[in-house]
Design a protein around this nucleic acid. Structure first.
Lengths: 116, 116
DNA sequence: CGAATACTGTGCCATAAGGCTAAGTATTAC
DNA sequence: GTAATACTTAGCCTTATGGCACAGTATTCG
């Protein structure tokens, strides 16, 4: 049993998808798409306290979706677009898998109406 | 504050990303890409008990990534590829956002070295 | 220097996630 | 009709998640 096809099981994909599973974090990614912003400026847009918001920032950074740096008392966040490419890559691999589907149609011994 | 850009906050995107955040579920999606399979056949490949595995199946179904149907005592699962398109769409929107970035460069009053 | 600003750290809380065992139900096989 | 198969249900456990309040630190402003 077992053998997951992704070589490492606890992959970066886990983190990236987890990070994007939260609407607040997706919105942060979206806003940073327009350019870097400070934590404070970002936080002001969301209905939660700063400490709570900071957790999202740290999650995004820990999973490589953003980069942050502190200058004086201000921490600026910037999107790391290349990290989103992991999602693209995974989707592309899926497509590769199902495009080879017709090659092995004989495997599907299930009810015909189950075939999408 | 607030106004998240996705119209509904608890969107389908939450569920889709959450479902894909787990390596077991991603692997199920991958395998179903090759064609429908029964819960039992799928489960045999994973290092966990059937009840545990069934939770993943239900999560995938609840979030629309797979369709399942029972015939006799066997439940067959099939991928719903169209649901993965939501991820594609979100990524495409991101690209749209950051491609319009240069239009408003004057907004970035932050440290120049922060600009990726 | 004292006050305001912008985080940061700590600890608490409620719910959800992901796993297990054990027992139950419905089909199918013998 | 008994037994094996293929889930399914229920309950428990541990850890993770996402939120809070409150207190603390480091910069910058006046």
């Amino acid at each position: 049993m077992a053998q997951y096809s992704e070589t490492l099981v606890g992959t970066a994909l886990d983190g990236v998808f987890t990070a994007l599973a939260d609407p607040t974090r997706r919105e942060v990614v979206r806003r940073l798409g327009r350019g870097p912003m400070s934590v404070g400026d970002l936080a002001r847009e969301f209905p939660m306290t700063l400490p709570s918001f900071m957790k999202h920032v740290r999650t995004l950074e820990a999973n490589g979706l953003i980069r942050t740096a502190k200058t004086g008392r201000v921490r600026t966040c910037a999107l790391r677009r290349e990290r989103l490419a992991l999602v693209d890559d995974w989707l592309a691999e899926q497509r590769r898998v199902w495009e080879s589907r017709t090659d092995r149609l004989e495997q599907f011994v299930t009810d015909p109406e189950e075939h999408q």
